[in-house]
């Protein structure tokens, strides 16, 4: 009975998130119908700009499920993008560079995971150092902005400019031309990763172990789970997903620079929290995180479409939403404790 009640309060949170997204989006459609907000492409553009963030949030949700945190993700993206850009400028093959970036993600995650899992250092401190390291390393590699052009890599340029058309939802623009809605390859990668994470968390041993450790590490250990190893794999997954996200991100920006993806870790954390993932661990769902990203994306899209609002509004609105959500979460937690 109690388990049912607990499940309910979390599904309610997820429902609130989804409803909020629907309301926000509908509001945007009504207010800015004349500016083309109703077109399918607006929604797809939100996906395209946030493809990298979706990947990162998937990884971060996994880490947060184990009651950890990973704030190195934004800096890792900057470092990965810089490596991609510099490597391709030096004439390396795009496929090789992508593989290198993924390997760096694995190694970096392994090191952070080792420090958190085996040396039992606080995740916040470890990943803060990781953030410093990556951001500084980006500057060590190159202090200037390096852009990826068609000359530096034909293949990467082709990936970035591939349009995957969607057979429905097109519209005729003011010049009378029929526009087919499209997504970029990054979106496909991000969505595949989302589905993968969803099934991994639901149906694999490792996925359930993340929930178990976040719920209560001590009982998980008594149950026979290797807590250290599972924690380490969470950070590894986060860094790998982040590296995949970095490739999606780079396909959008086509450049590497020191100040890239500044503060992205906070966007990812707030998306996951708005999506109903608790920072205390054990509770959360990657679908919720996805809607968290969409809400963030919709807010910035609305502010952009309006064109008159100051650029700081998305930050303030996201923070306000975050405030509302964590207060709701804490009220739910208080009610539950009172029942006990």
């Amino acid at each position: 009975m109690r388990r049912n009640a607990k499940l309910n309060s979390h599904t309610i949170l997820l429902l609130i998130t989804i409803v909020l997204f629907a309301v926000l989006y509908a509001g945007g459609c009504i207010a800015y119908a004349s500016k083309g907000f109703t077109h399918l492409q607006t929604f797809l553009n939100i996906l395209i700009t946030n493809a990298g963030l979706i990947c990162v949030t998937c990884g971060l949700t996994v880490v947060m499920l184990t009651a950890g945190i990973d704030i190195s993700v934004g800096a890792l993206i900057a470092m990965d993008c810089m490596i991609l850009a510099v490597g391709m400028r030096a004439g390396m093959n795009a496929v090789v560079m992508v593989l290198i970036v993924l390997v760096i993600g694995v190694l970096f995650g392994m090191f952070q995971g080792f420090l958190v899992g085996y040396l039992e250092i606080q995740p916040f401190i470890v990943t803060m150092a990781g953030m410093f390291f990556c951001r500084g390393m980006t500057a060590v590699i190159c202090t200037e902005q390096v852009s990826i052009t068609q000359q530096s890599s034909e293949l990467f340029y082709k990936w970035a400019n591939t349009k995957i058309n969607i057979p429905f939802g097109g519209y005729i623009n003011s010049k009378g031309k029929y526009l087919v809605p499209y997504v970029r390859p990054g979106v496909i990668v991000a969505l595949l990763l989302l589905v993968f994470t969803f099934f991994m968390l639901r149906h694999t041993k490792l996925g359930r172990a993340f929930y178990a450790i976040g719920g209560n590490a001590q009982s998980a250990a008594m149950m026979g789970l290797n807590v250290k190893k599972v924690k380490m794999s969470a950070y590894m997954l986060s860094s790998i997903f982040c590296s995949i996200g970095a490739i999606c991100y780079c396909l959008n920006t086509m450049a590497g620079s020191v100040s890239q993806a500044l503060g992205l870790e906070m966007d990812a954390i707030s998306s996951a929290v708005i999506g109903g993932t608790l920072l205390t661990g054990g509770v959360g769902n990657v679908i919720g995180s996805f809607f968290g990203v969409l809400i963030n994306g919709t807010i910035s899209s609305i502010v952009k479409t309006n064109g008159k609002l100051a650029s700081s509004w998305p930050n303030i609105l996201t923070a306000a939403l975050l405030f509302v959500f964590i207060v709701i979460q804490s009220v739910f937690a208080m009610l539950r404790n009172r029942k006990k």
Binding site: V126, F132, F133, T138, T143
Partner: peptide, 14 residues
């Protein structure tokens, strides 16, 4: 340089 300094800070913290 000021942008590269964080690398050393990170190593020291760890």
């Amino acid at each position: 340089s000021s942008t590269q300094a964080p690398v050393f800070k990170a190593v020291i913290v760890i």
